Every structure is written in structure tokens, then in C-alpha cells.
Simulated scan of single mutants.
Amino acid sequence: MKLIKTMSSEERESLSVPEDVDFRITATQQALASCTGAVLTSLLVTPLDVVKIRLQAQQKNTPKCYLYCNGLMDHFCGCKPQDLQRQWYARPGHFSGTMDAFYKITKTEGISSLWSGLSPTLVLAIPATIIYFVAYEQMRLKLKHRYNIANPGTSGQPFWIPMFSGGTARIFSVTIVSPLELIRTKMQSQKLSYYEIRRALKMLIKQDGIGALWMGVIPTLCRDVPFSAIYWTNYETFKKLFWTSNQPSFSKSFISGGLAGMVAATITTPFDVIKTHQQIQLGEKTLYGGKSKTMVGSFYDTFWEIRKSHGVRGLFAGLFPRVIKVAPSCAIMISSFEYGKIFFNRLARKNHVANISTKKDLMN
């Protein structure tokens, strides 16, 4: 790496080493970098959500379903009353608050209980994160390349490129993963075999059409697309402020990602509140079918219902816990991704220089 930095532009051209300030890597390497970030984020954030779910569960005698979120994505799970004492989310406990829950769960059930429910989260978090980050990076670089060609003499990128790329990448991710989420939820809640789930899906498609596989995708998009657009726009802005050079930095990426996540989480909290109401309703309807009388209202109807019942403050319910979970999740995820770009870029350049040196030796 030091060898390349000390070379002149003429020497770089002679060795055919691209002067790539963006630390571009292949799509496969981007997938590996984002996968690492997804696992790290899930491991570090899951205890916060386990505590949240346990605190919520003790307020209800027979919860029908709950939301599980690791900061990257969320999904709903069903609760069967007859299994309550055997399920991790309904174990007995009288917690007065978050810290009290952390202490009592660790003391009475062991520290491993703080990572209950991690496996089903990773099943969807990893593919969703890979699709999201790879789609964003590929789209951003292509749009930036075309912009620089159309505007000679410019090397940066306008704000609309990360905004558009982030929103579009989230649409791809949510749309692709949504049917998998429905299948996983069905299997988890009703203990169905693969043969039974195939029959259930055939019946669902026959009754409601192919669009039934994307049930609930609209409220998810209504929250996640604005969040992604705001997040990536702010992240690229903070990068320019904190980075003294074009080379990515783990610590500066961490700070930029955390601040961008904080801003995006704050602005989109009303979307999150509405989406949570709709997803819980959808969860009861999906998991229990005709047994549930729950009707899923439209985004507009849910907005005015919350506004009428709880006022403007109701639309920002849970702002603080959302921010303190989303901000570190974003920081860990993006800094891991940027470090992966550094690692693979250095490896590629090192191999490239080694290959050039070998060719020169053979020629001599």
C-alpha cells in the first residue's frame, strides 16, 4: 500500500494501477463485507431487543405476536398461549426497567438468554443486508461515474445520488425478502413442514393472488425507503466533513454512520410508529387468519388514528429507544462495511503489484 502511495501518476499508468479514490471492490467482496457487518450488528444489538420484548410481554397475559428488530430489519413472530411458559419471550419476570431486566435475566437465566431468538433473525438479516448494501454501492458508483462523465472536471457526487441509490436499494431488499419473511413466520408460528408450507402458499396464492406473498410490504416501504434515502445522504455528507482524505477510516465511518443513523431515525420515527401499528395488526391477521378480527388500516387511517388518540407526541412515541438502537446499529454496520472495502482493496492492489513485478522479472 505504501509503495503505491509513493508512486507518481506516470509510474501508476506504467503499472496499470487504477487511481481509485472510492476503494471500489467487486460485488462478491461487497457481499462479504456487508455479511460481516450484519452478523456483528445482530450480535451486539440483539440483547437490547430481547430486553424490550420481555418488558413488553410482562404487560400482557396472552400476547398474540410481537416485533423483533436488530436495528437492520424487523419481523413479527407469533405467540401461542399454550407454549407461553416454554418460550423465551414469555418467561416469568418482574422487571422495573431496562437495567433491572438486564440484571435479572443475566443472573437467573444466564447471559446467553440475552441472545435468545438470534438464529431466526440472522436467517433474514444476512440476505437482506447483502442485497441492500451491494445494490446501494453498485448503483451509487455507476451513477457517480455517469455524472462525472457528463460533467468533466468534477470528481464528487451530488446529494441526489446517495439519496436515490439508498431509497432504491431498500425497495429491492424489502421486495425480495418479504416473501421469505412470510414463509418463515408461517413456519415458526405453526410448526409447519416444508411440504405443509408449500400447500399453504399454494392455497394463499389461489385465494388472494400472487400479491399475497408481499402482504405488509407497503407499510415497511413507507418507513424504510425514506429512512434509507435520508441516512445515505447524511452519511455521504458527514464523510466529506470528517474524512481528511478519500481513504475510508473505521473510526470516522463509525462516527459518520452513527450520526447519520441518529438523524434518519429521528426524522422517520412517525413512519416507524405507524408501521409498527400496522405490522402488529398484520401479524395477528397473518398468523391467526379467520380467528383474528383485526383489520389492517391504511397508512393514512393509521396516521390519523394515532394523531387523534395521542396527539403529535404519539407519532414520536419510542423516539429515544429507537435512536439509541438504530444509531449504533448503523455505526457498526457501515464501519464494518467500509473496513471490508479497505481490506479487499489493499489485497487486490497488493496482488496487482505482485503480478506486475512477476511479469517484469520474466521479461528481464
Rank of each mutant, 00 (worst) to 15 (best):
L3T: 15
T6A: 13
M7F: 05
S9I: 14
S9W: 10
S9P: 07
E13G: 15
L15Q: 02
Q29E: 13
Q29A: 09
Q29S: 09
Q30L: 12
Q30A: 14
Q30V: 07
S34R: 00
T41D: 05
L43D: 08
L44W: 04
V45S: 04
P47I: 01
L48R: 02
V50M: 07
A57L: 08
K60L: 12
K60D: 07
N61R: 14
T62K: 11
P63H: 08
P63L: 02
K64C: 02
C65D: 09
L67Q: 10
G71T: 03
H75V: 01
F76Y: 11
C79P: 05
C79K: 10
K80G: 04
P81M: 07
L84N: 14
Q85K: 13
Q85I: 10
Y89I: 10
P92G: 11
T98P: 04
M99R: 14
F102R: 01
K104W: 05
S112H: 12
S113I: 14
S113M: 15
L114H: 09
L114A: 07
T121H: 11
L122C: 07
L122W: 06
L124Y: 08
A125C: 07
A125D: 02
I126N: 00
Y136N: 11
Y136D: 05
M139G: 08
R146H: 11
Y147P: 14
Q157A: 14
Q157H: 12
Q157C: 14
F159W: 14
S165A: 08
G166D: 05
G167V: 12
T168A: 13
F172T: 04
S173W: 03
T175N: 03
T175G: 06
T175C: 10
T175I: 04
L180Q: 00
E181H: 06
M187H: 03
Q188A: 13
S193M: 02
I197T: 00
L201N: 01
M203S: 15
M203F: 12
I205S: 02
D208T: 05
D208Q: 08
I210T: 09
L213F: 08
M215G: 15
I218Y: 12
P219S: 12
V225R: 08
V225S: 02
F227A: 01
F227H: 02
S228K: 06
W232I: 02
Y235S: 10
Y235N: 13
L241T: 07
N246R: 10
Q247L: 09
P248S: 01
F250Y: 08
G261P: 06
M262N: 01
M262G: 00
A264D: 07
T269H: 00
P270Y: 00
P270H: 04
P270Q: 02
D272C: 13
H277R: 11
Q281E: 07
L282A: 06
K285Y: 12
T286W: 14
L287T: 01
G289R: 09
G290P: 09
K291S: 03
K293N: 10
T294P: 01
D301M: 08
W304Y: 13
W304Q: 09
I306H: 01
H310R: 15
G311K: 09
G314R: 02
L315N: 04
A317S: 14
R322Y: 09
R322F: 09
V323I: 15
I324T: 00
A327W: 00
M333P: 06
M333K: 09
I334P: 06
I334H: 10
S335H: 05
F337P: 03
Y339D: 04
G340T: 08
F344V: 03
N345Y: 15
L347R: 13
A348N: 14
S357V: 13
T358W: 13
K359H: 12
D361W: 13
